[in-house]
Design a protein around this nucleic acid. Structure first.
Lengths: 217, 217
DNA sequence: AATGAATACAGGGAAAACCCCGTTGTTTTA
DNA sequence: TAAAACAACGGGGTTTTCCCTGTATTCATT
């Protein structure tokens, strides 16, 4: 295959070692060539501005500093709708998958994927415009099944704030103070969350917040 | 450099894509050659048995299924003390660093390291026997400073079990049941942990367990 | 103008969590 | 071998969490 016919791509990932290694791997695929690497969305934006050739495809990490995968994919669908985005993550989480797909990602896979499968996925995306693994497909089907499960519990602004504060050593009264609300209102939020999320006590709140990345560490 | 003089190494990491990519990268270093890859400690053990040439150096991930980095480095120092182990992790955590060093690792670095630095580290380890970045060095110094801080709070077997169970929606009474102990004993563990760890309530326990990787998810 | 949903809040009570102080037996250590 | 630390447990009390029911207000819908 001649050089000019190669598909071009970019890698956006803050793990330098991974990004550099992946570049080497992908450059061994005759159909592809890595144009550039960036450590996060902002760096990618600068690369896209400085370069006149934009890549056909972008491999996008989700957990990044400065500008993460969600923000980046949103920006790309807005500013470069033709560029195909493949999300790359360590985490197998339904919520994350859906968030990226809704953001415009054309595919999603885990970092424990086999290199051969990666190559297949890359080719599929260039050919068909998308690549969804079984895992991702089932997640989407699940999400669209109306009866089965609630899509993703929607939290109101105040509920989210409360939930985050509940993941600390503060008492509910103290939380009420910093939120400038009555302790009884907080009590209502708590009860409502217990019902919505199907949990029994405050530890359940913490676990939920952690699993759904509503708080850090 | 002739082939026979190359240093040999192995990569132990459950992220197939990363491992394969890293292999490609390292094989571009003229001084090194990847002998094999494994997805976790157990798979590595089998590789070591099946192969008659053991690698000079092993790049070891920490978070792995089946047999993690801590267990693996312990096994290696026991069974193959000549093999140099370099720990590779995404997390910059003092506790983890110390745990690996104490286990016998000759170096520790984060996955966001620059490829050039990786190469330098690999060469250093083969030449001097160890490679410690500034970050790791300062961590070790900190740990050995006698006055400054308590090393790391030591948890007894039962306290650890209790702590892990406390990170669920179980009541203390239920925890007492599954541990076959009186609720009052559990009460004592709780109180003791609060004192040792300087926390005020159960949420504090959960946060501590999470930060110190005493529980998963 | 009536209805209903959403939001902030209150009373009151039961259950859990939190805290201190004390006992017994065992094991470790000075 | 005595002192100290450890381990399991109990009495009893305060605070926080949990839970149910109910009210006043707002705001959009019919």
């Amino acid at each position: 295959m001649s050089n000019s016919k190669k598909h071009t791509l970019a890698i956006v990932d803050d793990h330098l070692l991974f990004a550099s290694s992946l570049e080497k791997l992908i450059n061994t695929f005759p159909e592809f060539q890595v144009l550039f690497k960036a450590r996060h969305g902002l760096e990618m934006q600068n690369e896209l501005k400085g370069n006149d050739t934009i890549p056909d495809l972008i491999l996008l990490d989700i957990n990044m500093p400065v500008m993460n995968g969600f923000e980046t994919v949103a920006w790309l669908t807005e500013n470069h709708p033709k560029v195909k985005v493949l999300a790359l993550s360590v985490e197998d989480n339904e919520g994350i998958i859906l968030k990226m797909i809704r953001g415009g990602a054309k595919g999603y896979f885990l970092k424990d994927i086999h290199p051969d499968d990666l190559k297949f996925a890359l080719l599929e995306v260039m050919e068909k415009g998308y690549y969804y693994s079984e895992r991702v497909t089932s997640t989407m089907v699940n999400a669209l099944q109306p009866g089965a499960k609630e899509p993703t519990v929607k939290l109101r602004e105040n509920e989210l704030t409360f939930l985050q504060l509940a993941c600390s050593e503060m008492t509910y009264k103290e939380i009420a103070d910093v939120m400038h609300l009555s302790p009884k209102t907080i009590d209502g939020y708590r009860q409502e969350l217990f019902n919505k999320l199907g949990i029994k006590n405050r530890v359940g709140l913490v676990i939920y917040a952690l699993k759904n990345h509503l708080i850090e560490l």
